[in-house]
Structure formats: C-alpha cells, structure tokens
Design a binder for these strands. Structure first.
Length: 249
DNA sequence: GGTTATGTTATTTC
DNA sequence: AGAAATAACATAAC
C-alpha cells in the first residue's frame, strides 16, 4: 500500500470523519486503545512520507502500513485487525500495520521539508544531503526516508527511468543539474500518482516499474535486485545513463 | 512448498 | 564504535 501518495490518498478518504468522537476501539493492545482513544475526538490528519497521523483531542496515533498493510474506511478486510476505530458515524480499520501513540507535537518530531508530498519540501536540502554520500548508488539513495520521505520502490524506478539514469549510477558522479531534475521528477511522479489513485487508474501509468519492455527502445527491460537494500530495479541499459567515475557524457 | 513483493527495524557481523 | 550485512516481521499471489 505504502508510498507517499497513497498515504495522502488515504488521508483524503479519512477526512470526512474529522470531528467525530471514538465510540469503540479494537485490535491489538485493546486496553491501550480504549484507555487512550475512547471518547477522543478526531481533530486533524496529516502525513509524513509513508506515515499517516490521526490527531485526537490529546494524542496522535501514527500508523505505518509497512509492506503488507491494508486499510478500510467504512468497511472491513478479511484478515486480522490491527487497529480498528469506530467513530460516531464511520469506521477506520487498519490491518498488518504498525501503530504508536505520540504525545509530542508533530513539529518537534518531523522535518516536513523532507517529505516529497509536503508543500515545504526542499529540493536544495535534498540535493545537499544526497551529495553527502557520493559513493552511494542512486537507487539506494532514493529510498532514504531521511532525504526523500515517501519515495518507495515504484516511484524510485519510475523517476530513474524517466530521467534516463541508470540505477547503479553513483550519486557523486551525477551532475547537479541532472540530480536536481531527478529529485523534481520524484515529486512530480508522486503528485501524478496521487491523481492516478483518485482516478483509480494507477496500475496503467508505470513506464518501467513492473514492466517487461522499454517503451522508448522496445527492448526488454532488465530487472535486477540491486544495491544495499537489494530492492528490484527495472531499467533499460540502452536509454538510462550509467554515471560512474571516468564516464564522460 | 518455494519465491516474490509498494518497507522498516532489530540484531549480528566485520 | 560504527558501518554493513542479515534476519525478522507482516501476507497474498503465482
């Protein structure tokens, strides 16, 4: 479920429930949930990267959907419930998620300028953080949630393909202008992705991620697990440039 | 039954 | 000590 745009999409679906009071809570650690949440009013929603925050009268619940997380607004999914909130008129159910109660103001915990979906996102800051580890593979760097929070494996692959950068390129060898366009592309794709989710057409828009053929060169895309994280990379050897020491473009 | 996958964190190893 | 590799967890589909 979980790249940044999907969390914003989730937030949009929960928004109609703002202002309602929790009448029942269930899931893992029920006592905590009941003590903490029963009678509390849902007052605000926000997201940071792949996390969503449900703001209540005097606490915040942070939810991360991880790898297999699912949710249902005013509905159920047939699997073990992790966090279920029954409001006056509506329900929010989370499955296979991680959640936690936060008491501190979110501004003390999060730097919003690193979230690609946030209006405060700061490209210059992301660039300088990226260049701090010049020996990293760009495919690893793009998954760093402290630099570009919200970018996941899909957005990563797609941004690299669209900007014609080979995933095994070294960050320090990518010219600043090129790297800037890549970061901008991550942001652009994320907002496009949000739009696809709203239209429910998200599956059809990927050009490289999960694809078999390069739409530019009509040759097979390579799919390999690359980098420290060993996450799947989809890429075209012909049209994506490999930035390495000694390679001159 | 094995493999894979939109992710992160804890533990182990060097 | 600290970076880097490995394991762990969650779950459905092929």
């Amino acid at each position: 479920m979980p790249e940044g745009p999907e969390m914003v999409f989730l937030k949009e679906q929960v928004e109609p429930l703002i202002g309602q009071v929790v009448v029942q809570a269930q899931g893992s650690d029920v006592e905590l949930l009941l003590d903490t949440l029963k009678g509390q009013r849902l007052t605000s929603l926000s997201t940071f990267g792949k996390e969503i925050f449900l703001g209540f009268t005097d606490c915040t619940i942070r939810i991360h959907l991880g790898f297999f997380g699912k949710y249902a607004i005013n509905g159920v999914v047939n699997r073990a419930l992790q966090l279920g909130l029954e409001l006056e008129e509506g329900t929010i159910n989370f499955y296979a998620c991680k959640y936690r109660v936060l008491r501190e103001p979110l501004d003390e915990l999060y730097d919003w300028s690193t979230d690609i979906m946030n209006p405060l996102f700061d490209t210059d800051q992301a660039l300088s953080k990226l260049y701090r580890k010049p020996d990293q593979l760009i495919c690893d760097a793009l998954l760093d949630q402290s630099i570009v929070a919200g970018v996941g494996n899909g957005i990563k692959n797609e941004a690299l393909f669209r900007q014609r950068i080979h995933p095994e390129s070294l960050v320090g060898e990518i010219p600043e202008l090129v790297l800037r366009k890549l970061v901008d592309e991550c942001v652009r794709i994320s907002f496009d992705y949000l739009e696809w989710l709203r239209e429910r057409t998200e599956a059809s828009h990927w050009q490289a991620y999960m694809r078999k053929q390069c739409p530019r060169d009509h040759i097979p895309l390579r799919k390999e697990n690359i980098g420290r994280a060993g996450r799947p990379c989809y890429f075209c050897d012909k049209c994506q440039r490999l930035y390495l020491p000694g390679n001159i473009w």
